[in-house]
Amino acid sequence: MLELRLVQGSLLKKVLESIKDLVNDANFDCSATGFSLQAMDSSHVALVALLLRSEGFEHYRCDRNMSMGMNLNNMAKMLKCAGNDDIITPSRPMMAVTPSPSCSKVQVRFTCCFAQDKIADFEMKLMDIDSEHLGIPEAEYHAIVRMPSSEFSRICKDLSSIGDTVVISVTKEGVRFSTRGDIGTANVVCRQNTTVDKPEEATIIEMNEPVSLTFALRYMNSFTKATPLSNTVTISLSSELPVVVEYKIAEMGYVRFYLAPKIED
């Protein structure tokens, strides 16, 4: 049996919005410790890993491990209904997700916090997904950059109007984002900056050794759809591994995007 209730239903909406364009179908794995998902995009270039710990839910009960295969676009459509209803407060809908006994459908219930006489029920079909689970090793990264997520989003968007790929280089100077296209080149350098009013506005660069990697901007731009989840983003780079772009979900977990670099032909 699985029962979970999330007071901040908007959080799940933001999670779905951040991953639905990258991954069509995915298994949500539920265990006593929480709700997780791991899925690759169809071309196996990027991987998303989501964790929502049980402590972050208002109510969480999972008696046995289960996997619920869902079409993420359909799930996002259902969750959008919570926000589009005038009576349901978009920022604080209560949400319950309960799979049916046969686990072929999932029932999603939105309850308005301030008008508790209204309940909206949605039932979504589950699907069998033969997904592969990948082992992600613990690794030492050459460089870890933490910066405001809005800044990272803006850089990716700006550079993608000039080129298709971004070279991310970390040196003593800072972190450099570069691109090149038919119309010219662009370089953005962010230096470490901890003298800011709010901690989330800081740029913090931990460098064990200089690193420079090339990535497809199309994917980076897709990852930045998670910007509403967190004020900061952490970018972990190693010359031997996919980059990790992580958005922490306050007190609950994270959404991590792994992207394979472009490599020498």
Partner: peptide
């Protein structure tokens, strides 16, 4: 020119 790498060449199936 560079070609796009693949996640499966970094992470193994479990």
């Amino acid at each position: 020119d560079r070609k796009q790498g693949n996640i499966l060449s970094f992470f193994k199936r479990v």
